[in-house]
């Protein structure tokens, strides 16, 4: 069962979403990954206006393959969200309401989603072909020189995703692991208490 969501996200919609909900998003989202986030933060630092109004919007962490002629976009699956952790709280302060990526977020970012009444969604990593079919239009709106990392405005229809972090502070990855972990089959291994707090980069 999926929940159909019309974008932009309203507070009313966000209140209804809980970690573990499967959703289908329809509407406008903006792509941004490492290099674009860096520039957005620099613009905010200088008090400059942003290439798009992030208030109420959803960003998608993706760097697509080049589109074949006649196609809207190439493969367009999510990249590892953890690399964007240093930037996300700042964007949430400026009104961002949602983000789509893969993998978990650190505690600071999870707190920021809760504090700013926003949602972090997971799209299935490695399904770039499937997700590309849900993109109906794509247009570069900023930082064209960044190539695959440019900011694009995408119109999506029935874009499948899963709520990982909701506004109530719940985390799907933590819940899922707690439910399915079989500690008696792990030998002398002591599981980590904290999920998704790795120290290195992530990719895609």
């Amino acid at each position: 069962m999926s929940i159909d969501i019309r974008l932009p996200l309203t507070d009313q919609t966000i209140e209804k979403l809980h970690a573990g909900d499967h959703v289908r998003l329809t509407g406008v989202i903006y792509t941004a990954r490492d290099a674009a986030h860096k520039r957005i933060i620099e613009a905010l630092d200088k008090g400059e206006s942003l290439p798009f109004d992030i208030r109420g919007q959803v960003v998608y962490y993706v760097g697509p393959t080049p589109a074949r002629p006649g196609r809207v976009i190439g493969a367009a699956g999510p990249t590892t969200s953890m690399r964007l952790n240093p930037y996300t709280p700042r964007l949430l302060e400026h009104g961002l309401k949602g983000a789509i990526g893969k993998g978990g977020r650190d505690r600071t970012v999870r707190e920021a989603f809760k504090k700013h009444k926003a949602v972090y969604f997971l799209a299935v990593g490695g399904t770039g072909a499937l997700l590309s079919k849900r993109v109906k239009s794509a247009e570069v709106v900023a930082y064209d020189d960044l190539g695959t990392e440019a900011v694009r405005r995408l119109e999506v229809e029935d874009f499948p995703a899963v709520v990982v972090n909701d506004m109530y502070g719940d985390d799907l990855l933590e819940q899922g692991k707690a439910r399915y972990q079989q500690r008696d089959r792990l030998g002398s291994y002591v599981p980590v208490e904290e999920n998704a707090e790795g120290s290195n980069g992530g990719g895609s």
């Binding site: 573990g20 893969k102 993998g103 978990g104 997971l122 299935v124 990593g125 899963v162 799907l172 990855l173 819940q175 899922g176 692991k177 707690a178 439910r179 399915y180 972990q181 079989q182 500690r183 089959r185 792990l186 599981p191 999920n195 998704a196």
Partner: peptide, 12 residues
């Protein structure tokens, strides 16, 4: 047995 599952949403 770690229970991470596909995409770490929880699972076997």
């Amino acid at each position: 047995a770690l229970g991470l599952g596909p995409q770490a949403v929880g699972g076997t």
